[in-house]
Design a protein around this nucleic acid. Structure first.
Lengths: 247, 247
DNA sequence: GTGACCTTTTTGTCTATACAAATAGATACA
DNA sequence: TGTATCTATTTGTATAGACAAAAAGGTCAC
């Protein structure tokens, strides 16, 4: 019923998770395992390779396979687009454009983004509300040479984050989370007190070493938090087909 | 030189990353690929399975393989033990125990932790300094029935987080990041102003559905931030053998 | 002792083949 | 028309065997 290689995988995993095999323990070599499980070496190899990819064991030719040190540190945070997140949680989301301006990168900002000064950008300010209550202030820069279609987009119906997700093929991103005190303007927009602790998420998105967009989300600290989990034994699974099936 | 399956993997990956194959695109079936790359189906299959595990494609029997929707959201945050983090960055770390008390779980805390009231716990308060400057206030609860050796540990030399990492076999963890304003006590300990925005990290660690420890780190907002990256095409790799090689 | 070379162990990759499982689409049938 | 059944396609799993590559450890000549 359950494939053999998955059984082997679970078996070994549980020995590691439970502490029977502590970090540094040398696990049986493939030849011993194939005898134990009565299967071919390829099958054992698949199980062990998967464990190695997940970082639970380390394999070395001639030396063998060893239980890796734990690393609680690599936590997966679900940092999503704010509108997507609200929708998923069954909340109502809306946004208001506060500013939309085409300008050129000044020296300081260019330095911060790692881009060249003078490049044409679209600067957006946008207020997000969840269930009618102010939830985030968005300050965004979009590089117009990489996303020229942004020039004519008003972002009135689709929020910038969501819109961009569909425009840029694939990307890498860097996230920074900070705590800052709200200044007067921010406090007014977020309907909170001046000096109130706010959670700021900064996201810079690249496509092959060029910045696509740089954005700051400022959330009132009393209405927002980030959460993430670390599961050593679960690999992420995706089973939803994308909507538009293009040939 | 480079294994074939890795070449196939990189090839397909680059087509996805560059946007040549957009989300929803049906990629050639294994039979076509093995003709293109002049290799066996197993080799093609390995490449495609790896891509599927990484979440870049979705495979369906009879239907074929499709490019998955992007999901910028699953970001890996390096949330480490504070002393480890300081060491790695080449900073000097020290800690001071402020409180160390054995007590029993009250109803409210038990509820919050999902544990039963009255269980024996060790409550720790601890101040962390990096390069001589206050960097975090740690408030921790350790379940004594799961970690009985904590009862006699003073945590004078090794900070609690690091000590626990070596004591508990493997575990899953949940992290929550929030922004809060410093109260008078916190402000005094962290050498900052009352009301100052602080970044709070809450971590709850389990071992097979039992809480091992629950901890809050409160960082001054002006001295701390979390950062994390999303790389679609890199799987995490570990190549460092654990120190103690036990047989 | 030191370096060059060989042997052995263990993992890494690959092939060719086989059958199983899922399932979309076609076909037969009531 | 709707339903049950068959068929073809595609991926999933497994096998047995082969050779390659890394690297520890041994051997031998110098």
């Amino acid at each position: 019923m359950v494939p053999i290689h998955q059984r082997i995988l679970k078996d070994i995993e549980s020995k590691i998770v439970s502490g029977i095999w502590p970090p540094g323990h040398r696990i049986p070599v493939e030849h011993e395992l194939l005898k134990e499980y009565q299967c071919s070496r390829m099958t054992v190899n698949k199980a062990l390779s998967t464990l190695a990819e997940r970082g639970m064991i380390i394999r070395r030719r001639k030396l063998g396979s060893f239980v890796a040190s734990r690393q609680i540190d690599r936590t997966v945070m679900d940092i999503q687009d704010i509108s997507t997140e609200a929708e998923l949680a069954g909340h109502e989301h809306s946004h208001t454009m506060l500013m939309r301006k085409v300008e050129r990168l000044d020296a300081a900002t260019a330095m911060r983004l790692g881009e060249t000064m003078g490049a044409e950008i679209l600067r957006l300010h946008c207020l997000h509300a969840v269930d009618g209550k102010a939830n985030a202030l968005e300050r965004r820069i979009i590089m117009l040479d990489l996303v020229p279609s942004a020039r004519t987009e008003s972002f009135a119906t689709v929020p910038p984050g969501k819109w961009l997700l569909d425009m840029v093929p694939w990307s890498k991103a860097r996230h920074v989370i900070r705590a800052v005190s709200a200044d007067a303007t921010t406090a007014r927009l977020l309907e909170t007190e001046r000096g109130e602790a706010c959670l700021t998420l900064i996201r810079q998105t690249w496509q092959s070493s060029r910045t696509v967009t740089y954005v700051e989300f400022i959330h009132p600290g009393d209405r927002f938090q980030f959460a993430g989990d670390f599961h050593p034994n679960e690999s992420r699974t995706i089973d939803q087909l994308p909507q538009g099936i293009a040939s």
